[in-house]
Design a protein around this nucleic acid. Structure first.
Lengths: 106, 106
DNA sequence: ATCAACAGGTTTGCAGTACAAACTTGTTGA
DNA sequence: TCAACAAGTTTGTACTGCAAACCTGTTGAT
């Protein structure tokens, strides 16, 4: 860093996008969850088009961030994982959409 | 992959986002370029808030993809790099925004 | 009763990327 | 003449997304 250089903080970014939400796979997940009360893994996989591995890891990240809550239960003897969006997650999604509108235009 | 598994192509993704445009740094660059005829490196750096290194590498990627064109010239004896958005870039940005509107809501 | 195939996920390995820091080439000022 | 500056570029690291391999238990066929 040299004198005259633009320093961190010199500029307020136009757009402050939450990376956790910005990732398309997670955006899809949150968007679906925001519209439903609770959804199951399989359903979520079909609707988002993600494979199991990626759906699993993305939901884990969303959970670690507190945007999503996981429930594990059994249907008969078969394990079923379900997800809900948290209050935090809903807030984050709303904030993200607000940012998007700035750039989406029209 | 086992029988019953969801296969690639089984599902048409809701959202088809161009990763080259989706990256916030590049989105900012393209957005600025779309609004101006031609902009200089320094200006672009100030307005996007990126540091020189990252601005340089992102513009190079955009150029490699054909979304941006670079002009190098001298102001006096000092080198000045300028950028324009290409026709392709404008199209890509427009398509991206169209996708965004689906998810941005209200 | 045994064993292969299935259901429902999770973990791993790799390949690609963004960011900051270091470097480069030339210029200006003391 | 030589240190500081201008304008970028290249490098190194740390992260992250994806597909494939793996795991645990269940069901169906023989």
């Amino acid at each position: 860093m040299k004198p005259g250089d633009i320093k961190p903080g010199d500029i307020k970014p136009i757009l402050e996008l939450d990376r956790m939400v910005h990732e398309p796979a997670r955006l899809a997940i949150l968007t679906v969850l925001a519209a439903a009360e609770e959804v199951e893994f399989q359903f979520l996989q079909r609707i988002t088009g993600l494979n199991k591995g990626n759906l699993s890891s993305h939901t884990q990240k969303l959970e670690a961030t507190g945007y999503l809550a996981t429930t594990k239960a059994f249907r008969g003897r078969i394990p079923v994982t379900s997800f809900r969006i948290t209050k935090e997650g809903r807030k984050a999604l709303e904030a993200y959409r607000k940012q998007l509108r700035k750039v989406a235009g029209g």
